[in-house]
Design a protein around this nucleic acid. Structure first.
Lengths: 191, 191, 191, 191
DNA sequence: CATGAATGAGCCTTCATTCAT
DNA sequence: AATGAATGAAGGCTCATTCAT
């Protein structure tokens, strides 16, 4: 069951709204439906018709990135080195989250506005969980970490990079360093 | 140079305002100056006189905890096991941050409203930095971590515990697990 | 001169719209053209084409009941007991009005959207007027009541039953009591 | 226990707001808080401070009239002709309701915004009830009417006068005629 | 004829801040 | 110093109506 395809003019507006929302997200402005409408510009009603809540719009903006992440995760499952697979997936996730403010917000939100978001988050959890389990089964991961810790830890790393306050460009690099620290430990091995 | 001491009645109000603010912070209510005034109760103007912005009030609420942390840090400097000292300090920091909403907000804020806050944050950075340097000098800490990473990482851990969504009670436990993971590494040693 | 008959599909929509409107009226929902369209479902434009205003739709919904009342009135004219005839007519009217929200709205409205409504209201006034006149001529009705008082008084009774706030079921009973009080007088005869 | 008296300037605004509201009520405009603010003129917040809801403002406008009615009712209780007392009270009530749109709205509302309103409505019910009971005890009133019928019937009469559509000036006269009809009966005595 | 997307005026409400008392 | 009334920008949302497709 798919949603009926939008009329051409409606689709046009949908695109424009999402595009503006993307810009706002990228420049760190909080998404306000009236504001989006003013900038597109379309009537407020049009934005409300397409996206009943700011969350719905935000998630729509985030979905392509979530899909890409999920796709990457699926590929990672094919890697037969469990540690490399997990590392790769997490690295990618962190990069995305640090680069794209919509992702961190959506990832941290306890509830979703769109079913598609829920679905994708579930997929990501599942893929991450499998990668984690595999690595743990291989004895590569400390046993007290569960699947439910993955998302919080990634959000935490991304948040840490934000707090660090480096310029957006450097932020990705910082985040990668923090991820490495988390994975390999702040304390040097064997000491 | 010190500020003139408050008149006795003014001092009384100051205390009452801070006490109410503390309660609000603890129950997770966002600090609104009007709201605080109503609850004390004093006139809004009185609250504004003492605390020109919500941030100033929030920082005032946070300061005692920051001082306690700083004191703990000073004592940790006396410990001659650098790793134990650092671990103790960070554990304490995380616990405080997870328990007390004022701390996480103040710690993550890029600018401060009160000079005293800036001073305390500097002290904490300095103490943490010394503990870190010492541990690194002892070869116990990975070399790519700098003093500037300490606060972000702690904020990240606290945030991760929040995202995990466990009840406030369990949150401290979660945060401690995450700190351990960070310090010792997600990946098991020697593999 | 009659309106051109609708095309078969248009007629079908007309019916469906009116049916939905009837449901909405019965469940006490205010008639909103957009809402009706969504529920039918047809495009808003279709509803607007058939019914330029909510009033037009409401009147369309009310018309069958008005017709039935009118028919009843015509029959009452044949009754040779003028008082019984009037009482029967008013009773029926009140019952209808209390039962059917479209009627009270249409009856109380100072202007009509549809000519047919005006026509029916005129018929009803005329019939009621004749019944009233006859009863008055028989000396059964106080002389200061005119034809123009009939509709207001019926609306008033229905409204009173609404204000009484009894459940819809009991409302008809209340209305009947009020009508009796009005006809026979609150004050006991001969005192 | 009384509410603290308002500061002089606040009292001034309170008065101005109520005065404007009175005008709006009298010209039949629905009370909208923003609208009131614009017309006074004061900031919206000021109106909201004094009257959290349109209902609260409306009731404030109505209260003096309710008080006057209640006072009249108390005096009527002293009349030793029960029928005359009741008639007088109802006449006065109807006149007030027809003249003042705030009264009909407040009278018909199932719930009140202000405690004072509830109190006054209760007083009026009680007074009316006593007058009714007395008249019934004297055998002057049909026995199937209860205290709970008084308010609905008065609202109904007032509404009927409105539906009649005569000019506001004539409306009071119409209402009085309807009240008489109700009290003495539409049907002539002894027939 | 039917569709339903778009419009935008308009209402509601909150809250940070100022300033007369 | 304290008070708390006043302000009004700002944001949220709904809905009647139009008009391009």
């Amino acid at each position: 069951m798919t949603t009926a395809p939008l009329r051409k003019d409606a689709a046009r507006n949908w695109e424009r709204i999402v595009a503006v929302a993307r810009e706002l997200v990228d420049e760190g402005t909080p998404l306000q439906l009236n504001d989006v409408a003013r900038r597109v510009p379309v009537g407020v009603g049009t934005v409300y018709r397409h996206f009943p809540t700011p969350e719905a719009l935000l998630e729509t903006v985030a979905i392509p990135c979530l899909e890409e992440l999920a796709a990457h995760g699926e590929r990672a499952l094919a890697d037969d080195d469990p540690r490399r697979a997990l590392t790769g997936f997490l690295t990618r996730t962190i990069e995305a989250q640090v680069t794209d403010a919509s992702l961190s917000a959506v990832a941290a939100a306890p509830t979703d506005a769109l079913p598609r978001t829920t679905e994708l988050k579930r997929t990501l959890s599942s893929v991450g969980g499998q990668l984690l389990d595999r690595a743990r089964d291989a004895g590569a991961v400390r046993p007290d970490l569960t699947r439910d810790d993955l998302v919080p830890l990634m959000c935490g790393i991304a948040y840490a990079a934000t707090v660090h306050g480096s310029a957006p460009a450097a932020r990705a690099e910082t985040a990668r360093r923090y991820l490495t620290a988390l994975l390999e430990g702040v304390y040097v091995r064997g000491r």
